[in-house]
Amino acid sequence: MWVYEKKLLYPVEVTTCNPMLARYIMEQYGGADGELAAALRYMNQRYTVPDKVIGLLTDISTEEFSHLEMLATMIYKLTKDATPEQLEKAGLGAHFVNHGHSLFYENAGGVPFTTTYIQSKGDPIADLYEDIAAEEKARATYQWLIDISDDPGINDALRFLRERENIHSLRFREAVELLKDERDRKKIF
């Protein structure tokens, strides 16, 4: 069960109508290394990991959904009053034809989200290493988004989100260390 708070995790200030930037941010919205992939990956793996790390996966997955909400707000605000011509110029003509002004889970190239982006291997070490890799890839994506964006309000929120990827990566690394402590040999002696 979840309790919803009707506010964003971190404020999102958007000052310009910039559908091109919205399109780039969609990489983190519905892309392979994006927040949707992260949230779904952890929320699913959590059932079959050792009990010590179930809570961590649930918590981080929940936070990823709050990041997804921030990205949705950015994309919505950057495009909500854009004309079809502006959207077309930004490379969102095909998006507009299919989805109008609504959002959709697609990457910056317009490829729709697929669960083939994520995995649950049922082996705790394999799963946690995938999670660490996912956080590092998301961190890198935020770096390139910050580099390509000239909107100071958006960049402030993107910097916050990038920092959270660092912390999540660290927590997953700690989870691996916790599991190493569960070594059978240690318990016998």
Partner: peptide, 29 residues
Amino acid sequence: DRSLFRGSYKPYVSPRDPCPPILVKTFVL
């Protein structure tokens, strides 16, 4: 010594588990 490279934990077991519960789960380290 293979026990060096295996870990284990006791998952939550409910009195209403439909299948006979496995009390200790082992994984590879």
